[in-house]
Amino acid sequence: MIITTRDTDDVVIFDITGEIRRSDNMETTLHHLVKTHLDRGKRKIMLNLEKVEFIDSFGVGEILASYISTQNLGGRFKLFNISKKLLLIFQITMLTKVLDIYEDEDCALRSFGQA
């Protein structure tokens, strides 16, 4: 899994490539990265899942932990560009009830303005 970070105004976007899964070669975790940005005062976090092929239970835990950490500080945590297959799994497991998921980056960015 490769995570690159970019900032758009006060929004931090993580572009993730590969699989969000447990790996012994992992240098850092998604949740750790999100917390680092929260510690710097960032409160608007987005995950670009366009190039994410699969997520395992560890990956789901990381996404939910990131969501909880952000939300409980009064921040907003959003996902976008999620594949139809992953979206279906998210729907069946009810993750869509707690996670904000948008079709693309523009929609996700615009939603901050509406909040």
Partner: peptide, 27 residues
Amino acid sequence: RKWIDANKAVKDNVDMDVTGRVFDALE
């Protein structure tokens, strides 16, 4: 409230045990 308690939202809506098993099964 300006925002919901995320821990509670997850607890109320998502069965984490089942969700983990579903993703593990698929994996």
